[in-house]
Write a protein that binds this DNA or RNA. Sequence first.
DNA 1: TTCTGACCAAATTGTTGTATTTAGTCAGAG
DNA 2: CTCTGACTAAATACAACAATTTGGTCAGAA
Lengths: 230, 230
Amino acid sequence: MKDSSVQMGRVLEAASALIVHYGFDKTTMEDIARKAGMSKSALYLIWSSKDRLLSALLAYEMKRLLADFSVRLEADPDGGQIANLVRHSLLALKNNPLMAALYTRDSRTLGDFVSHQDVSRYTSRIMLGVTSTAQMQAAGLLQSGIRPEVMAYVFSIVAMGFIHIQSIVPTAEAPPLEEVADAISHLMQHGFAGSSEHSAAGKQAISSLMDHAVRQYDEELSKARRSYEQ
Amino acid sequence: MKDSSVQMGRVLEAASALIVHYGFDKTTMEDIARKAGMSKSALYLIWSSKDRLLSALLAYEMKRLLADFSVRLEADPDGGQIANLVRHSLLALKNNPLMAALYTRDSRTLGDFVSHQDVSRYTSRIMLGVTSTAQMQAAGLLQSGIRPEVMAYVFSIVAMGFIHIQSIVPTAEAPPLEEVADAISHLMQHGFAGSSEHSAAGKQAISSLMDHAVRQYDEELSKARRSYEQ
DNA sequence: TTCTGACCAAATTGTTGTATTTAGTCAGAG
DNA sequence: CTCTGACTAAATACAACAATTTGGTCAGAA
């Protein structure tokens, strides 16, 4: 059990690197197997198809993204402030090209998967969703004058733009990432933050939300496996 | 001269509608001519190639976008406030599908043009550029704590996200446009606006900037024409 | 049990030749 | 002088077929 899961990790790491570079369609099962140091058949012992492997990969990467976010959040004393919540989620997203591709429906990297499958269960969770926005409004960490649906939508817009801008403005010409993140943080803090200073509540809310999410992706990860009997 | 310019307008209107609907590649010169009520040959009396027509069209639409923006700005007593500047430019951009396509490098609508040509002269002007941001900082309408390059970049991010989000979230599920624009305005006003209440200065600065831009696109419009001898 | 190499059917890609469309020209009508 | 319809060369779309790749299976090696 432990063995198979560590080897599963190796495979998904390999798949991730290849797919980010060559795209899903141009990446073959053979390629993935070779890079992971095993045979193609071994992959089929774990997942019954290439699509299943992709499902698993997305859940895996989503977990990585959440973990990354989590680490940044914990390390930040003011992590519960909306400004830092936004900052950390943007930086975490930026660090995960596969999730970024999912978020932008990049069909070059993700193939037809993005159009055929329902990906909202991934994309709805990046940055703040409607319910968590409402929660943070209730806790006084976000202003209440704007409907949570609208506020969450604006968060999505910013995340969207943050990822997409890189295809327009060459990274060499763009300002340093940290500075941009600071500016967006500043914008959020002064534009959307509530009056409450008690950011621990926000940190706590986000933390428990993420625990729930991680469990969900764990389940998805095992559901994708062949050993999972439906 | 006057005749030819009004007919040029008819052609570009026709071209715009067709290209937005079918895309540049699938729109033929014949289609455009028929819709404009003239023969294909007549188009070639004005522009020497389909690409030249597209260049003219983009300049034309850019002028329309600026005019639209201008009208909104003039009608708004607080048009010089950054919040409203952002609001009006977003709404104007949203109302111009061709410019939006250019901004998102949508190759379905714009064909290979977007990749081959340099389109920065269009995209750099939507929302606030670096120099105008700096000007508005100097006038006290924007905060000075953030470098103008970074601030302008954040403006681009928001515009980018605003346009791109529509390809992810179906318009039916999205909050009302006006409400979103309000929220973004609010965000900008409290996050980036300076202390100066004297928004007339901002309005003036933007106004003159746009006059300059319009002249530039006018020139581009005539440069694209056959009658322009180089 | 755990994994692999050989294997197959299906999909993808490459090719060649033909049919159609379309950007661009031009002599001449109005 | 303004415009058009007929024309052409080039690009594109299509069809049929061969060559190759690749997702997925399975008997058997380790």
